[in-house]
């Protein structure tokens, strides 16, 4: 195992994060604060409690997930797409590093950055609403698993993308709607029966539900199902990445 290479990729990527601190960390915090002001305080004060949880607190896990999912994808996608775009990928391809080590480096850095953002949003939420975490260990587990699995997905998008437009296509057209319709701002049980069934085809429902369970102890789907869903998604991403490197898809000629 080339640990030095993993470390080098990780440090290089994290340096980029800290170099663009405003864009990387401050911007998601500001946008999430705006959500808290609009949905949490302004609208939330006129909303009923959901499962005995005040609406302002109810949306906290969903908002963290919303940001963490989109940030994981865009960070990881950009991380691997940028070297491809400017040509520095050739240095990585000519280095004694395996596909696995490359993935750990890039996905590790992208997931770390998303986790940092998730934690900052969690802290920011305390300024707007009163919130407590019923299962802190599970909260961390869900956060880590979500950051890693969606960074893996972002890594795939970064390899697949031919241009910057494609790089933003999936996060914009697929992920954002899935997160909004996945129960970020409401409980699935609030929907008519038909739409509840449709929602269960949305994988993000399981993530948000599981994450919300770690906060409030109540969820739309069983916690075991949520964990299974996220592990399945991670396995799918890992397998796809394995195939990509095996056949050199869009990396090697």
């Amino acid at each position: 195992m080339n640990f030095e290479a993993i470390k080098a990729i990780y440090i290089f990527e994290m340096t980029r994060t800290f170099r663009t601190l405003l864009q990387s960390l401050v911007s998601p915090v500001i946008s999430t604060s705006l959500y808290f002001i609009v949905f949490g305080t302004a609208i939330g004060s006129r909303m009923e409690d959901i499962s005995e949880v005040p609406y302002g607190a109810f949306i906290v896990p969903g908002l963290i997930m919303l940001t963490v999912l989109t940030q994981s994808i865009s960070n990881a996608a950009f991380g691997i797409y940028f070297p491809k775009f400017i040509g520095t990928i050739n240095e990585i391809l000519s280095a004694p590093v395996s596909a696995f080590e490359i993935v750990i480096g890039y996905v590790g850095a992208a997931a770390t950055k998303s986790m940092m953002i998730g934690i900052i949003i969690f802290i920011t939420a305390h300024f707007f609403v009163e919130i407590s975490v019923e299962h802190p260990v599970w909260m961390v587990v869900f956060l880590v698993l979500t950051c890693v699995s969606f960074s893996l997905f972002g890594f795939i998008i970064g390899i697949w993308a031919k241009n910057f437009e494609q790089l933003n296509l999936i996060p914009m057209l697929v992920i954002t709607p899935l997160v909004f319709l996945g129960g970020s701002f409401y409980s699935i049980s609030m929907l008519p029966e038909f739409w509840q069934k449709v929602s269960f085809f949305n994988p993000v429902v399981y993530l948000i539900s599981g994450f919300r369970w770690s906060f409030f102890g109540s969820s739309d789907v069983a916690i075991e199902v949520s964990i299974m869903a996220i592990l399945l998604f991670s396995s799918f991403c890992l397998y796809t990445i394995y195939q990509i490197f095996k056949f050199g898809y869009k990396i090697k000629q």
Binding site: E4, A5, A8, I86, T88, N90, E91, P96
Partner: peptide, 29 residues
């Protein structure tokens, strides 16, 4: 093996030192 490519492919926003340290690490040193 060390390779000096034909094209001037480098990360524009990085410092010379960082990009060189990155290469050393990438090759396991």
């Amino acid at each position: 093996i060390g390779l000096v490519p034909q094209e001037l492919v480098l990360e524009s926003f990085e410092t010379a030192m960082n990009t060189i340290q990155f290469s050393r690490g990438l090759f396991g040193k």
